[in-house]
Design a protein around this nucleic acid. Structure first.
Lengths: 242, 242
DNA sequence: TCTCATTCTTGGTCCGTACCAATATTCAGA
DNA sequence: TCTGAATATTGGTACGGACCAAGAATGAGA
């Protein structure tokens, strides 16, 4: 018996980060935070811990630092990088009620690109899952997911109308942590348009995603077709040094 | 006279990062790196410095760490987050030769959304720059950029067929560091299609970008219409903790 | 041979100190 | 009053030490 029981001890720098984020919210942009040495004294921690907390805030885009001058509240806390989320989480974030109609749920042989991207042999099988995802009752996107059957035995016995990621986590301990995405635009064909409830010839966003676990092992290959009139992708990018 | 003369002293952790990245390239995925204490001894630095270097590599997706086990080479070094780049840099990265046809370059009054997003008053003026960008001689996208005229006096006197970001940097000391982007799909109208050299009714990617400098002050508002048959957007996303 | 508790290894957190580099401030001199 | 050098402040880098927590390896016992 292996108890996970993650004690979830919260480190000091994380506690400090939250407190600072809370303080920041009632500060105007470009206003200076206390100096690092100040914060260390005030919160009874070392300067290293303060820097650790601030680094997280800088990464999140909440503050910016200027050497010799100080640390300041950033202009726009709104800016958030896209994170790897399930459709269910994504819709919740947009304030929409998610729904699902399962169109296909079966086991097939791995072939071609799918086989290659999931690093499977030609003998291996994959779970195929085609679902029409709804937002506030109306079609939002058409999702086709492939997963290595060996890693998710009995997946199709579970309820597939909810969050796939939730099932992967609770039933199999699989947590996708990173994903490569390719975003394209295309014009919908007749059948896809019909399923999505829009006229043929309408535009759509196609997102191809290959999600992997912490080890870098592929766990999910999904292609999603979003209605262009209902969906967009927002993210913040930064200039790369070097 | 204020000499910038950035001595560009390279910190130890940065030197170490480069050396490690070099070593990693000849290692297979999932192979372990030496332990942090090992690396510290071997390179005659403190463990803190080693961790600083490794953190950068983790952030770049080159390695991953497992507490209690070690640090390992990540599976796919290819995966790179999209970074804020100019069209010129973007095309260079894809191995294409960039070109430009300037369609409009003028000074107009700020109005509506542009005015609001660039945080300008209704009296202020903006530089408008509409350019057809080519890749290997063929149209790739249609770019419409707006910049606060006050921050870039005499911009239109410069050559606008090259990289705008390069001019901003060298002539005005402006370096956009972060940008919020919104990506949508749409069907091209007749005039845009004609400019891009594709049949009307074709799909396109529309990217709206608001770029800001380090202070969080907006410096550039651009809408770009990409040919869907020649362009896609690739990026890596990670699961957000908390 | 297998299981499970123990021990070891490894990354994660935290402290205190010291000095460097860029910016802001002060103040003497023109 | 203004200019420019000297000084103080602030974030950036670096060290060394200590202990914690999670995974890996070991070894005793069933």
């Amino acid at each position: 018996m292996r108890m996970v029981m993650t004690g979830h001890r919260v480190p000091k720098y994380e506690q400090l980060r939250r407190r600072l984020l809370h303080d920041i919210e009632r500060l105007a942009p470009h206003q200076p935070l206390p100096t690092e040495r100040d914060l260390a004294l005030r919160h009874r921690v070392s300067r290293a811990t303060v820097r650790h907390a601030l680094e997280a805030l800088v990464k999140a885009g909440a503050v910016y630092r200027v050497q010799g001058a100080g640390t300041f509240v950033a202009d726009q806390i709104i800016s958030k990088s896209v994170s790897l989320t399930s459709f269910t989480e994504d819709m919740a974030g947009r304030g929409l009620r998610p729904g699902t109609r399962v169109l296909v749920a079966d086991l097939i042989g791995a072939r071609g690109r799918i086989c290659q991207e999931l690093r499977l042999g030609s003998e291996d099988e994959v779970v195929r899952l085609v679902r029409l995802r709804l937002a506030d009752e109306a079609p939002m996107c058409l999702e086709t997911a492939y997963l290595p059957a060996a890693r998710v035995p009995g997946l199709l016995d579970h309820d597939m109308t909810g969050s796939l990621y939730s099932v992967l986590d609770t039933k199999y301990g699989i947590i996708p942590v990173v994903a490569d995405q390719v975003v394209e635009a295309l014009v919908l064909g007749d059948s896809d348009a019909a399923l999505l409830g829009v006229p043929p010839g309408t535009a759509a966003l196609r997102v191809r995603r290959l999600a992997t676990d912490q080890r870098g092992v592929p766990v999910e290959r999904t292609t999603t077709l979003y209605r262009a009139d209902r969906y967009d992708i927002r993210f913040t990018i930064a200039r790369q040094r070097c």
